[in-house]
Design a protein around this nucleic acid. Sequence first.
DNA 1: CTCGTTACGTCAGACATGCTGACATAAATA
DNA 2: TATTTATGTCAGCATGTCTGACGTAACGAG
Lengths: 136, 136
Amino acid sequence: MLFIAARDVAGKSASVLAAAGLGRAHARALHFIARNPGLSVAELLGFLKITKQSLNRVMSDLLNGGFVERKTGMQDRRTRSLQLTPAGMALAEAVWNAQRPILAAAFRAAGQDAVGGYRKVLIGIAGDPVRWRKNP
Amino acid sequence: MLFIAARDVAGKSASVLAAAGLGRAHARALHFIARNPGLSVAELLGFLKITKQSLNRVMSDLLNGGFVERKTGMQDRRTRSLQLTPAGMALAEAVWNAQRPILAAAFRAAGQDAVGGYRKVLIGIAGDPVRWRKNP
DNA sequence: CTCGTTACGTCAGACATGCTGACATAAATA
DNA sequence: TATTTATGTCAGCATGTCTGACGTAACGAG
């Protein structure tokens, strides 16, 4: 059920992404950058659990497409601070708008208590999102 | 969180599958055949939501590896009835044993009520598993 | 029984996304 | 200064998905 649910939610964004010439891998990177503005490349790789080589193409597309901005880190100038451009924010919002209805309907149908339990179990499986980012 | 949870649970089975020379696509097919013994190819495609061409390689591997048995359907002789061989059952169980600990720990930590809510929400997103199979 | 439809099998080629290995550069740090 | 760290980049390979095209066997309507 986890597989089906994740697939179906991710699938909702396909048309929006295709219109921008992007795929699901781009959507995931976009998602984590949107929720952790200014994160470093290493942090993003930690979220995605892929190699930097795999991220390379995805990031190139996002940078060339003007969806993500890459600046030299302030404390440590070796790092890169990643954040969405206005175009990137608009795209992230469009993706969310495509996915929201299915989640909202499920949450509404299940009720608030059920959603609390749902979150609790997902945190048990995936870890607490609050602790995902180690060096903010 | 859905993405992370699904990825992490699926990831647990990688080593078991690699030992059998299979990948995650095989595991998914194996999973649905295990839970719906005797299902047809069309039904399996409905669960997986992929094309028959994509399923082709996966099924060839499973058949050649002796994990799945394919018999001519009884009512409709055009269909194929798919079920696991003993080897397939053993592999499915090994996969489950690899994935179970992470789910069991999350369920135990969250409590029974939370698990009920978790199931309720997932059913809202993915649909009721009981109704997934249309022509049993 | 013939004909159209359905369920399945298969080949060929393409794309998306992941991987490893190897090497380069700049900045921090010992 | 020497080493380590954070990142970028190129080349090649594996997996899993897709579309398109074609073939076969069996069902069902007429």
